[in-house]
Simulated assay, not measured.
Amino acid sequence: MKKTILAFSRVSPSLLEPYKDKYNVIIMSPEMGDMDAQFEAAIPRAHGLIGGNRRLGEAELASAKNLEIISSISVGYDNYDLSYLNGRGIMLTNTPDVLNETTADLAFALILATARRIPELDAWTKEGSWTKTIDASHFGCDVHGKTLGIIGLGKIGEAIARRGRFGFGMNILYSGNSRKPQLDQELGARFVPQEELLSEADFVCPVVPLTDGTRNLIGRKELALMGSESILINVSRGPVVDQDALIQVLEEKTIRAAGLDVYGKEPLTNSKLFKLKNVVTVPHIGSATTDTRNAMAQRALVNLLMGLEGRRPRDLVNVHELGHRWTE
């Protein structure tokens, strides 16, 4: 009997076309009606899921009696109830590494956009306000030679740090679970306590996964440690930053600005953030380039097929719980 693959989002039909002889392939599409209804109708037949941006836990998967693997087209996996998946022995995979450089590009775009006030002054120019030479009220701040503080110097954080150090001559501070001597030497980076990083850095970038330990990692106390000319950049997960606290300090201008790709609730359609000139907001586009999204989908497909074929997927998230299957 053929196994069934359900593609529940972010999947081009051409990705799975070559596998329709070996698998029953169901590809959800808005053109076919309500996406939730499509999911509910198809999930009892599914052996493997591929996609992203859908919360999946007991309520959504109770009828998925055949489910073996969820292949997420994402790095983060906080949308999935990992404890529930572990309890049922369902494999979960993600797509790490593929988007490191692309996300670092975006982080630096936000650094430059906030520092030089690009969106604000673009809108000001287009509305016809540029009638004479600009004055100090329109000045931004430099990026080159400043101090970049990265909370969580993983692969994305490292890519951001390289851009800062070698592209802009920035001083690099980092905090996290462990020191990285090789990067200390290569980047001239300093491993410091988070409190010291917050008080010294001109640009603060949390680059951590969302866990119970990192939720509201940057809250009122942490924002109060930042200087009045410092800028917060968030390309990790929205709940890593206390959004209400951030809005307050931006309104009070106790920090200079913020550049945000992620938010406490997404999509974000109505927020006080939109009324603030010292915030640059983009709609969670960290990996949103054609090349990167294609690479993520291809990697997720490989993970899915390996799992369905009884092989250990390359990027098995719950390897500690399920990895014994391939060692016995």
Rank of each mutant, 00 (worst) to 15 (best):
T114M: 12
M170Q: 12
G238I: 04
Q185W: 00
G219W: 07
L232Y: 10
T147G: 02
F203G: 05
M170K: 04
E186M: 11
E186H: 11
D202Y: 03
E251G: 12
T214Y: 08
E251Y: 04
L173M: 03
A159F: 13
L250D: 06
A136L: 15
R163C: 01
L121Y: 14
A245D: 13
L225P: 05
V192R: 11
I231H: 07
R220E: 03
G128M: 00
E229D: 15
Q248S: 15
C141P: 06
I150H: 11
V208S: 12
I233R: 10
D244M: 08
A201I: 09
E200N: 12
I233A: 10
F203R: 08
I151D: 03
N177V: 08
W130C: 07
R179W: 11
A201L: 00
Q248D: 15
Q243T: 08
T133P: 08
T125K: 05
V192A: 13
G128N: 03
Q243D: 13
G145A: 11
Q182N: 14
P119G: 11
I118M: 08
I247Q: 08
R179N: 13
V143T: 11
H138D: 06
V235F: 06
K126I: 01
F139Q: 14
D135S: 10
L112A: 04
D122L: 01
L183P: 05
L217T: 06
S175T: 15
G213C: 02
L217M: 13
D135R: 07
V207D: 06
M226K: 12
E186S: 13
H144D: 14
K221D: 10
R179F: 12
P206Q: 07
L183N: 00
L198M: 09
N171D: 14
D244H: 09
L198A: 02
T133E: 15
V143L: 09
P181C: 00
L153I: 12
G157V: 11
L183Y: 02
I151V: 13
N216G: 08
E200W: 03
S129T: 04
T211Q: 07
H144S: 15
N216P: 04
D242C: 01
Q248L: 12
G176I: 04
E186K: 07
S175N: 14
L250N: 00
Q243E: 15
V235P: 06
S178N: 15
L197P: 09
L197D: 11
G149Y: 07
R165A: 12
V207F: 00
E186Y: 08
N216R: 02
I150L: 07
G152W: 10
E186I: 02
V143Y: 00
G169Q: 02
Y174V: 01
K155N: 14
P119N: 11
F166G: 10
P206C: 09
T125P: 08
I160E: 06
S175D: 14
E186W: 02
E195Y: 03
L217F: 03
S236M: 05
S236A: 15
L225F: 12
I218A: 07
V249N: 05
L121T: 09
E195K: 12
Q243W: 10
I218D: 06
